[in-house]
Simulated assay, not measured.
Amino acid sequence: MGNKVSAQASVDIKSVQNLGTPPPECPMHNNANTKPVKEAEKPSECPVQHGNSSETKKPSECPVQHGNDINPYNMMPPANQQPAPDQPFSLPTNRQVSSIPRAMPDGSTEFWVYPSQQMFWNAMLRKGWRWKDEDIKQKDMEDIIHIHNANNEQAWQEVLKWEALHAKECGHPRLKSFGGKATQYSPRAIIRSWLGYELPFDRHDWIVDRCGKDVRYVIDYYDGGEVDNKFQFALLDVRPALDSLDNVWDRMKVFYMRYRYELIGDKENSKLTN
C-alpha cells in the first residue's frame, strides 16, 4: 500500500476510535507474549521534555487491582492477546511504547503502551464489529494500528501546545486518564453542526496531570480525507474543557493570539499586494 492506506482501514479506525488505548502492559498477567520490562531494556531518553534528566522512559505497569474487569484509567477491560475463535488470520501481539507520559502516584515516569493488532481486533469484536461483514485483510489491521497510534501522538502534541502556557508552573505535564465519548457530542461540535459543518466521528476526554492539578481536555476528531504518509487523516480539535476559570482564561488568551496573528498577517499581505 506504500504511503496510502486503504479506505477500509480508514472506515474501521473511525468505527473503533473510541476504544482508546487498552490497559498498559502488566507483568503479572503472565501472558506468553507479556513480560516485565527489565532495567536494561528501558529506553534512556523521553521524547517529551520533562525537566528531570534522571527520569527514564519505561512502559506503564499494571495500574489497577487484579480481579477488577475495568481499568479506571482508560475504561477498558484487561488486555486480551488471544486469537478469536473464528479469526481468519493470525495477528501480531507486539506493542509499541508511546511518547505520552503517564501520571504515576510516586512521581516516576512511565509511558502508555499502545495495543497490539490482536488486542485491537478483539476490542473491535467486543464493540460489536463482525469481520465477516467486511472485506478486511491482515494488512488493514497493520494500517489501523498505525492510524490509531498516530492520532494519539498528534493529540498529545496538541495538548502540549496548550500546556506550554503553563510551562513555568509545570514543565512535565502527564496524561492521567482518558475515555471515549463518541456519542456525546461536545457543545462546540453541536454548534458547528448548526452552522452546516459535519459532526466529529469521535470524541475523547483526556485528564492531564499538571504537576498535581487535573486538567480536562476535550478532543473532537473530524474526517480529514485521505490518509497521509504519516498515517494521519483526522483533523483534531483539541482544547481545555470549559469547566474551570483557568481553562476559560487559557481559551480566551489563545483566541486573542490567533485573532491578532491573523489580523497582522492580513495587514502584511495587504502591504505586499499594494
Rank of each mutant, 00 (worst) to 15 (best):
I100D: 05
Q117T: 07
P23S: 11
Q138Y: 04
V238D: 02
F233N: 00
D205A: 03
F233R: 01
E226C: 01
L91T: 08
D243I: 07
E169C: 00
G2D: 05
V238T: 10
N151R: 08
A79I: 15
D266M: 14
F111K: 03
A40E: 15
R102E: 10
W249S: 10
K161Y: 04
H146Y: 03
K38N: 08
T183P: 00
Q118W: 07
K137R: 14
R216C: 05
M1P: 02
R260E: 13
A103T: 09
Q87K: 09
L175V: 04
K132G: 07
P43S: 10
N247L: 04
Q81C: 10
R258F: 00
E198Q: 11
G51M: 12
N68L: 13
V227L: 00
G128T: 10
N247E: 06
R174W: 00
R130S: 14
N149C: 09
N229C: 02
P78I: 09
A164S: 12
I144Q: 10
P27L: 12
Q82S: 14
D205H: 04
E61N: 15
Q117C: 06
P115K: 08
P72I: 10
S270V: 08
A84P: 06
Y221C: 03
P63T: 09
Q87F: 05
G20F: 05
C211W: 08
P22H: 07
V37F: 08
S99Y: 02
L236T: 02
S54R: 13
R239Y: 12
G265Q: 11
M75R: 15
S99K: 15
S90N: 12
T93V: 15
A155D: 04
M119H: 00
M141P: 01
L236I: 04
P24H: 05
G67F: 09
